[in-house]
Computed example of a mutant assay.
Amino acid sequence: MHILVTNDDGVHAPGLLALVQAMQGLGDVTVFAPDRNWSASGHTKTLGRPLRVDEVQLADGTPALATDGAPSDCVSLALLGLIKPVDLVVTGINPHANIGSDITYSGTVTSAMEAVIGGVPGLAFSLETPLDLAEADYSSAGEIARRVAEKAIAEGLPKDTLLSTNIPYLPLDEIKGFRITRLGERIYLDELVSREDPFGRPYYWIGGKHPTGELIPDTDFGAISEGFVSITPIQMDMTAYSEMKRLQNWVW
């Protein structure tokens, strides 16, 4: 079993180190991550410029590869042959939850999507860290990630399906268990922030409060809000099959 570990927060992010340490013992581990933070980068593939890859070390001395490309570039380069064949791709541990529509923005989840596109199972891990916490403790999340990866290796995943795991920020003995969930309804509280630079030219930020979600028990947001680990199977086929018949009745 050869496991590729990547993320979207950069190769030196503490969540990546926790995930690497959690995967050791499950197989051979290769670390390949962006050289900087790519949070909310979405599913990006770099085609218009060359990509650089450097050898680096994590804080515990683990060797790693870092690229100036996007998170999904790490997976793409690996599966195209930059490293030996990969059996499983795990991504994270993201310091904040990726629920509902977040999965379309998240470099963590879209890296797992890139794995599935390449024919390799993908697991994405995210931790709902409190916003006012200066330094997160990833020990519980690392143990959860190991358990999920062990189960996925043993049981297998269907073709074109990945698992997005969201973990509540709790000590391991306070986590209530696991729930298999659907994507919830993410509520975004974005605001347009307009400023002027010293030359009087306008510039803009997408600001606002941290997003929230609807507290429905069978959803990802509902589960982690109640102290459960949320595991959501995500399929790459996003076709709205229920809408196809209606569209076929339109007069084209």
Rank of each mutant, 00 (worst) to 15 (best):
D28I: 00
T46Y: 05
D73N: 04
L26P: 08
G184P: 02
A70N: 08
G208R: 13
V5R: 00
S194V: 14
D68Y: 12
T110D: 06
D9F: 14
K245D: 11
E143Y: 04
F228I: 03
S164K: 09
T62W: 00
N166W: 03
I117S: 11
A18E: 04
I144H: 03
I231M: 15
G27D: 07
H210W: 13
N249M: 15
R186Q: 02
F32W: 02
P85A: 11
V116K: 01
L65Q: 05
E243T: 05
T161C: 14
P50C: 08
P34T: 06
A33P: 06
L17F: 08
S126L: 02
Q57T: 10
N98E: 09
L58R: 07
A141G: 14
I234T: 04
G208T: 09
T44Q: 15
D173A: 09
Y203H: 14
V116F: 00
V5E: 04
Q248D: 12
T91E: 01
W205G: 06
G27I: 00
I187D: 03
T110A: 07
I117M: 14
V31S: 11
S194N: 08
V75A: 09
G122V: 01
L127E: 01
M238D: 10
G200N: 05
I3G: 05
D60E: 09
V193I: 12
L131A: 12
S72L: 01
P85L: 09
I93E: 04
I175L: 13
V109A: 03
P211W: 06
G15R: 03
L58G: 11
P63T: 04
R147K: 15
W38G: 01
T67S: 15
T219Q: 11
D54V: 10
W250Q: 11
P85N: 04
D218N: 15
L65P: 02
S101L: 09
P211C: 11
S164A: 13
H12E: 06
P34V: 02
L123M: 01
L162G: 06
T6M: 09
L79P: 05
A134G: 11
S111K: 00
A136S: 15
S72H: 05
S230H: 03
L17R: 05
L19H: 01
T239Y: 12
A97G: 10
V90D: 07
R52W: 12
T212L: 09
W38C: 14
S164W: 00
Y203L: 12
I167N: 02
T165G: 05
D220G: 06
V109S: 04
L192T: 13
R36Q: 12
A145W: 10
G207M: 08
S194Q: 08
G213L: 01
N98Q: 13
D9V: 11
K159D: 12
L47S: 10
A124E: 06
A154D: 11
P198G: 08
K159I: 06
T212W: 04
S39N: 08
L16W: 07
E191S: 12
R246M: 08
K45S: 10
A136C: 03
S126F: 04
E114Q: 02
S230V: 05
S140Q: 09
V5A: 15
S106D: 07
E174D: 14
I224V: 13
S225L: 02
P121K: 01
S164Q: 13
F199S: 11
